[in-house]
Design a protein around this nucleic acid. Structure first.
Lengths: 186, 186
DNA sequence: CTAATTTTTTGATCTACATCAAAAAAACTG
DNA sequence: CAGTTTTTTTGATGTAGATCAAAAAATTAG
């Protein structure tokens, strides 16, 4: 739990009462390799924080798995649309390896919102997230395969080190053959 | 101003007092064709609503103009990052044709925030915007040029009808020659 | 530790789209 | 509305990355 507290503290300083409440509301969940945290069609009623391990978010498009992102330790994961609109999720969340999450349900999240620090945290997080997406996301699509790879290596070296080649390729929007060839050049 | 009121009403019903305050705080701004609403390096201190006309958002990348989006009537425009972080904008906002905007400055926006309807409106808008970007943006990058064109025609037919070929091509991330050829096939 | 399965690499060929160049069409401007 | 500039179209050729096929390497399981 300390990891999550440290993480939130970067955005909004938590006092003892807030930490106590958090410990009451958040629960540790463990997943084995390849186990699903969320499947398409389910309602996503939680937000998770990755304590250890790695989680891949993907959806199906014409039968193929399209990796949206591969999250590592200290990332927040959820199905945003499903969580906020209370609709069935269109995507899957799958543990890439032995993974420990800290989960907070919608109801518990509401209780936490009595503490202004958590509201601040949520707002900042959302703001950051969406500004980040706004600036990076289209840019990414315009890069060459090599540029995409270098960019990913820079912003998430852990992910590049540990994730499967095929998953990274899918995230980049190229075939695994292409990624394999990119890795070979130097 | 009625257009903006109608637009906000979709999200949060405005009463007479709120409308009065809005009319006090928002001001009409007119731009000629090709005139800049915002330039790179400037601080963006306003959010605008497009009353009439069309606005292109772009930035420079290796000397070339990369079109991020082309906004039409009833769209909200701003430089998100600059507005919220009070940093110099990295992008340009340019009127594609004779354009009328309704602008609200940051200070006036704060005043409006005394009315809960405006807060609701802002939150919903931000939420919508960022969920939309999250779902569509990467998807878009994976489409073929033809698919991108069909998608854009579907979500913004007005823009496809009125914007310059070169601008649309840049938004799609293809050359204008390619877009011209796509348009020719039926 | 060995066999089975999964993942990654390598090679050959194909294709969507880029680039370069120039003509045709459309839109301004005096 | 004639001349100039800008935008769009057309054609020829080049290239990054896809696809198909199969070997090599790594992982997993009995």
């Amino acid at each position: 739990m300390q990891k999550l507290i440290d993480y939130i503290n970067q955005y909004a300083k938590l006092d003892d009462a807030a930490i106590l409440e958090l410990e009451l509301r958040a629960e540790i969940e463990k997943f084995k390799k390849n186990e699903f945290i969320l499947e398409q069609g389910e309602y996503c009623n939680k937000i998770w924080f990755i304590k250890s391990g790695m989680v891949r978010k993907f959806h199906l498009h014409e039968g193929k798995e399209i990796t949206a992102w591969i999250h590592v330790v200290n990332d927040i994961i959820t199905s945003l649309y499903s969580y906020f609109h209370q609709t069935p999720a269109i995507e899957y969340l799958q543990a890439c390896e032995e993974t420990e999450l800290i989960g907070i349900s919608r109801e518990n999240s509401k209780k936490l919102a009595q503490f202004p620090q958590f509201v601040t945290f949520t707002n900042v997080l959302m703001g950051e997230h969406f500004v980040k997406i706004d600036t990076n996301s289209r840019e990414f699509g315009l890069m060459s395969a090599k540029e995409k790879y270098d960019y990913l290596k820079q912003i998430s070296p852990e992910m590049i080190k540990r994730a499967k080649l095929g998953h990274i390729a899918s995230l980049m929007g190229v075939t695994q053959e292409t990624l394999s060839r990119i890795r070979k050049q130097t």
